[in-house]
Simulated assay, not measured.
Amino acid sequence: MDEAPKTAIRGVMFYVLALLVLGMLVVAVYTIYGHPADPSERPAAETIPQKAPAPQ
C-alpha cells in the first residue's frame, strides 16, 4: 500500500513536466511562425476604419 502514493506523485510530476515541455514547444513555434510573412505589411489594427468624430 506504500507504493500507491509514490506512483501517484510520480505520475503527477510526469504530467506537469509534459505540460511544461509542450508549453515551451508551443511558444517556440509561435515565436518562429507567429509573425507576418511580409514585414512591410500593415498591421490589421491599422486597416480598420476609425469612427469619425461627431460634428460639433
Rank of each mutant, 00 (worst) to 15 (best):
Y33A: 14
I48G: 01
F14H: 06
D2Q: 05
Y15M: 10
T47H: 07
A4L: 15
Y30I: 10
R10L: 06
L25I: 12
E3Y: 15
I32S: 06
L17D: 01
Q56G: 09
M13R: 14
T7Y: 13
A44P: 05
V16I: 12
F14P: 00
Q50T: 11
A45T: 03
G23A: 04
D38H: 04
A52Q: 05
R10K: 07
A8V: 08
M13V: 12
M1D: 06
A45H: 10
V29W: 05
E46C: 05
F14V: 08
K6P: 01
P49G: 07
G23N: 09
P36C: 03
A37G: 02
K6T: 04
A44Q: 07
R10N: 13
P36S: 09
V16M: 10
P36A: 01
P53S: 04
A18I: 07
M13I: 15
A52F: 01
A8C: 03
M1K: 07
L25W: 01
M1V: 12
P49Y: 07
G11R: 07
I48E: 08
G11K: 05
A18D: 06
P53G: 00
G23F: 01
I48R: 09
Q56I: 14
L25E: 08
P39K: 02
P55S: 09
Y30L: 14
A8Y: 13
T31F: 12
A45S: 14
L22C: 06
V29S: 08
T47N: 15
G34P: 06
A4C: 04
L19C: 14
L25Y: 06
L22F: 08
I9T: 03
Y30T: 14
L22N: 08
A18R: 05
M24C: 11
Y33F: 14
D38F: 11
P36V: 01
Y30S: 14
V12D: 00
